[in-house]
Simulated assay, not measured.
Amino acid sequence: MPIHVTCDSCHSNFNAPDGTGGKRAKCPSCGSVIVIPTPPPKEEEVFEAEMAPAGGFDDDDFEIEAPVETPSTDEPRKPCPMCGEQISINAIKCRFCGEIFDPQLKKQARISSSGEDEQLGVFEWIIAILCSNIGCIVAIVYIIQGKPKGKKMLMVVACVYVITFIIGVIIGVFQEVQNAP
């Protein structure tokens, strides 16, 4: 049986599939995050719960968790655009999903997390020097991915090409000198 849902933002009505009660979803009309209400239990389920056998179990057999209380603050809140959780209206990072909202902080976090992508590893050095054509392709892929080591690898490949060209010219000149009468 579908669950009737009304969006708090745009007040549009729609039906959610059975079993989705309590979950978060995006409104098909406006895209805001809403919580699908939990339907009340059916009469049969209530009747069965009341008629459960009383013998064999007491309150000590069940662990009852206390509800987690969220600290009440007077600070205004807004839903996180990524996960929909309520966060401070002045938040620069969501405490639930970790999304960073400040563009400068986001850029700085991206740079600091890419520290392992700045240095070429042994594998990249071997490919760049011994297999320059493949190294060039790998470097271009790294550049497309936004990894700083892509530019470094491309420079190594270019240097290998230049050195190989210079060595080839020198060998060619020596061969001409030897073959000259």
Rank of each mutant, 00 (worst) to 15 (best):
P2V: 06
I3C: 02
I3M: 03
V5M: 05
T6L: 09
C7Y: 01
D8K: 14
D8R: 11
C10Q: 01
H11M: 10
H11K: 13
S12V: 14
S12K: 08
N15G: 12
N15K: 11
A16L: 02
A16R: 04
P17D: 10
P17G: 11
G19K: 03
G19N: 01
T20Y: 05
T20Q: 08
G21P: 03
C27W: 02
P28C: 04
G31M: 04
P37H: 00
T38W: 12
T38N: 08
T38K: 09
P39A: 08
P39E: 04
K42S: 14
E45M: 12
E45T: 10
V46I: 11
F47D: 10
E48K: 15
A49I: 07
A49G: 06
E50W: 13
M51N: 14
A52I: 10
P53W: 09
G55R: 13
D58Q: 09
D60A: 15
D61S: 08
I64Q: 11
A66Q: 14
P67V: 06
P67M: 09
P67L: 07
V68F: 11
V68I: 15
E69G: 10
E69V: 14
E69K: 10
T70H: 13
P71Q: 13
S72E: 14
S72R: 15
T73S: 12
D74F: 08
E75M: 07
E75Y: 08
E75W: 05
K78C: 07
P81R: 05
M82C: 15
C83K: 01
G84D: 03
E85R: 10
I87E: 00
S88A: 10
N90A: 13
A91I: 03
I92H: 07
K93Q: 13
C94L: 06
R95V: 14
F96E: 06
F96D: 05
C97S: 03
E99Y: 11
I100E: 03
I100L: 04
F101L: 07
P103E: 12
K106S: 11
K106Q: 09
K107P: 07
Q108D: 09
Q108L: 05
Q108P: 03
A109F: 05
R110V: 13
I111M: 10
I111S: 07
S113R: 15
S113L: 10
S113I: 11
S114E: 05
G115D: 10
E116H: 09
D117K: 08
D117V: 03
E118K: 08
L120A: 00
G121C: 04
F123A: 10
F123N: 15
I127K: 07
I127R: 05
I127V: 14
A128Q: 01
A128N: 01
I129G: 01
I129F: 02
L130K: 13
L130V: 12
C131Q: 11
C131T: 08
N133T: 13
V138Q: 00
A139T: 00
A139Q: 00
I140Q: 08
Y142S: 01
I143Q: 04
G146T: 01
K147D: 02
P148Y: 00
K149T: 00
K151T: 11
K152W: 02
V157A: 01
V160M: 06
V162A: 13
I163P: 03
T164F: 12
T164N: 15
F165Q: 07
F165C: 12
F165Y: 13
I166N: 02
I167H: 04
G168V: 06
G168L: 08
V169C: 10
V169G: 08
V169H: 04
I171Y: 09
V173R: 04
V177I: 15
Q178A: 14
Q178R: 14
A180P: 02
